[in-house]
Amino acid sequence: MGALAEGLSWLRANPGIFLGALGEHLLLSLTGLAIGIALALPLGLLVARRARLAEAAIAAAGLLRTLPSLAVLAALLPLLGVGFTPSVVALALVALPPVLVNAVIGLRGVDSQALEAATGLGMTARQRLLRVELPLAAPLIFAGLRIAAVQVVSGAALATFIGGGGLGDLVTQGMALLETGRLLVGGIAIAALALGMEYGFGRLERASARWSGTA
């Protein structure tokens, strides 16, 4: 209980520092997530209908996923230096695999009879994508977004190591200064953000399942 009280009193004394770190963290995470999604979704659409490319994409994503976030950050340091940009690039790389894999699996799993009907009844490729493929793949695509969001928000805590800022700063500073309150506020906030993402995107996922008639 003592630690919690310390955290609260630190928060009361330094609301500006906390909000600044939170803002940075969200900016880092959302930018990284957005870039990751912007790359992974079109890529997924592109490869999903080509069996070999799809397999290759899933294998590559699996490889990327096994790399520890900290290792990616460290590897980017000599290439991109320190600060916001390399952090965002690293987070985009974290977001990419789950979004890509789920998009590919979701699109490939669409009922082949429904696809045959869509084409046979005279839908153009675009109409088929928008009216049949995406709605039916939506639950898996949203599950990919949820996983990516949670991983990015957690991963953004490491941005502090290459000067990217965010809530991770509170943790490292708290450790360096032996300031338990600061440390705790940073840690709890990161955990709460991850849980919030899980909950928010989970709701989206369930809504999409109802929308696609698979719930």
């Binding site: 429904a114 009907a117 039916l136």
Partner: peptide, 21 residues
């Protein structure tokens, strides 16, 4: 082909209804 198909009724094997509609 797209215009052609819209002018032909097509009943496909195993029905192939759109499950989300």
């Amino acid at each position: 082909p797209v215009t052609l198909r819209r002018g032909i009724g097509y009943v496909i094997q195993n029905v192939g209804l759109f499950p989300h509609r």
